[in-house]
Design a protein around this nucleic acid. Structure first.
Lengths: 233, 233, 233, 233
DNA sequence: TATGAATGAGGCTTCATTCAT
DNA sequence: TATGAATGAAGCCTCATTCAT
């Protein structure tokens, strides 16, 4: 854990790290301005990386997108990789939030939990297409320690969904003949792959896509359809 | 179309292209040796590109893998991109073959066709993990004309599967409430994503994976399970 | 000479230079605070330059050492080179003081003067290791006019020692067969090189080192040993 | 030792290292041409580094000196540091050779050995002023493992000379009152410092300088002058 | 005084590609 | 076919310095 936080800390430009160490976490206007700028930087990186791919995108491209000079960008980052890492971290934070909400739901059976999970996750992916596409295209461009950091968190995620499927099978809500580990991969496939085919300007709304994915996955693991045929349009 | 074939022609090393133009498709020992070497080159490229990603892999890396010098590699290729293009073409050739076989099947209902398609395709993917992973990771690194060439062929593919789903729905073999275009994406997701999670040295055999994927996708589009519970081992 | 003083003047931060020109050499508390800060700045620079070498040390490094930001450092300096120049000037001022004291000694023969000179100079060097090491490693990093300024003063130094050796030879106190110009270089070598091998935490005290150096150099130029075998501890 | 050779091996450009591994050490004209070019590269680096200092010299400068492009230089080196390392290694090889010859001398007392050592070493230094000046100015610019490699070899050197002085003292050939460890430093000072004051176009020949240095050092450690007053002119 | 954002130049290195041998 | 030297463009990063706040 300390290893990991070191990796994160190390990624911050010297001065910001120093400021943080001194406990300057107050919400002065300076800090707020700074945070806004950081967000802009990440957005520019997300745009550029998703369009050209991390490896083919240059620091120059990101700087151009921001309207500053290449050298100036290094006020906000230590290395180009920082941008990728921060982007992936953000995604992970959000995704874990979704998982946590699902995990904490009471009085809902595992099949419904999975259904909801798929819907939420798909909607999130489609709302964050750029970052998600980077997440799935460029994770391997990360240096080893950071890659590990992300991958390990993903593994937990995996275990949780697999156990939900197991539970559903145990309760007779899903086909018990299929290996839940393999099924979870199929379920993830359904969710994740959306970033490759969804067209924001296309006919189908995000909710419509989520609905199809949820139904596909639910039926796919052998679950009965939801009683109320509420299909989001 | 002529644009495209120009792109292809241009991509071949001078002598081979010339030979092809002259219709020299004979099978002399020289030609055979040549073809074997080409295959080795592509295999080396497949290894290197799949490990490091096309953009991060260097021509030097491929040459190293072959045990020759960078300069020597240019006897076989005109540009680095050639390697990527040829690799993707190979994949497409194979994939179209699978599709053609399925399409030509007589006396089989669309649901069974889809089932078989998923199985064949998944097995193929798992048998060609490196190339498939390049196909899905690095297609966008291709220059525009070549990219278009590949993408258009992929679109036909897409249309065919979508029509199979439509047919299945029309024949009451699949859930008619879901948009077949969206369903086809989910089906592709199930097939394609395998390259991201399948571990060649893992527990599950390729056929076992194909079986789960096929059942997941079949149920996912709302199809009845196959009567004979033949689970491939 | 006026060139030189221009160089010096230019090297001082605006306000200090202005103050000096107006003859404000008073000792107000502000001035004193100021001077203390300047000293801290030079110490920080001395530390950083001696550790990393002038060229490899960054203004950022010096600022870090002081615990301020890079931009803030520019309140005290005009350019990075200023720091180097001031440091070298300090050294020269001190060294000339030593030389002057020796030169003004009455009733002491040249051999004794040389002996004393070596001792004093070695002790000074060892007490100011960082600055001395910068002096001998990084003088050439100075821009031409400033470099000349320092080098010329060094030449005077050289001439004086050479003449002391000549005198000693003339008085039969040193080997007259050796060129005093070459001998003076050997004598300087003995003194200067200490900065490269002396370990502050080592066994030998500064005085012990000075004693050995003095005896080595004295004997080296062919001088009889001092009668009283007082070896400083 | 294997660490060290790894450091050396790692410093060679990929292909040359590979060639060496394959045992291609024959003396073909290619190999000879190559070696000549390598020598030119090192000479260019020696010139540039000695003039501007390693840190301030750019790879561009070295390439300019060679009349090739910056990028082309990387055919011969892996990093800029390689040039520095190879240069320092060369010096060390030569210097060790001198020491070995001295060490193997039979029937010569330690004082004479020291005398000869000083002469040979000074002449060598003056004949290789550029490289020697780099050696003493820029060793610390080397990365840690390589720096250690060099420094350790230097330490052996040091021990040998110290032991020669001890022996001379034991045999009544040198002043036994002075610590031989400190004396060896003074002796080295005499030899090394020459690179800072010797002017190739000056009055004194290299042998004359060597003669003065040898006599200075010999007398410095308290040794009797050589009987034959052969002063090299 | 101090801050921190920005500049712009330059440095090291990589790399696809060419070409004479 | 194979080699290896060379090219030239581009990429990542550092840094001294400036300036508005």
């Amino acid at each position: 854990m300390s290893e990991v936080s070191a990796a994160v800390a190390l990624s911050l430009p010297e001065r910001r790290a120093a400021a943080l160490r001194k406990g300057k976490t107050d919400d002065t206007s300076r800090t707020r301005r700074r945070r806004k700028r950081d967000e802009e930087v990440l957005n520019a990186a997300a745009k550029v990386f998703s369009e050209r791919g991390y490896s083919d995108a240059s620091v120059q491209d990101v700087a151009d997108e921001l309207g500053i000079l290449k050298g100036s960008l290094y006020h906000y980052i230590r290395t180009k990789e920082d941008l990728l890492f921060w982007l992936l971290e953000e995604v992970h934070r959000d995704v874990e939030e979704i998982l946590d909400e699902i995990a904490e739901m009471d009085g809902v059976n595992p099949l419904e939990q999975l259904d909801l999970y798929v819907r939420r996750q798909v909607v999130y992916n489609l709302e964050n297409l750029k970052r998600i596409s980077i997440y799935y295209q460029d994770l391997d461009r990360l240096s080893e320690p950071r890659r590990k950091h992300i991958i390990e968190r993903r593994a937990e995620h995996d275990r949780f969904i697999t156990s939900l499927i197991s539970d559903a099978q145990a309760q007779g809500l899903a086909n018990p003949d299929l290996d839940p580990r393999l099924l979870s991969n199929c379920l993830f496939a359904t969710i994740i792959w959306t970033y490759r085919w969804y067209k924001p300007r296309g006919r189908a709304s995000r909710e419509a896509v989520a609905d199809v994915c949820a139904k596909f996955a639910r039926a796919g693991i052998g679950g009965a359809p939801a009683i109320e045929a509420t299909s989001a349009s």
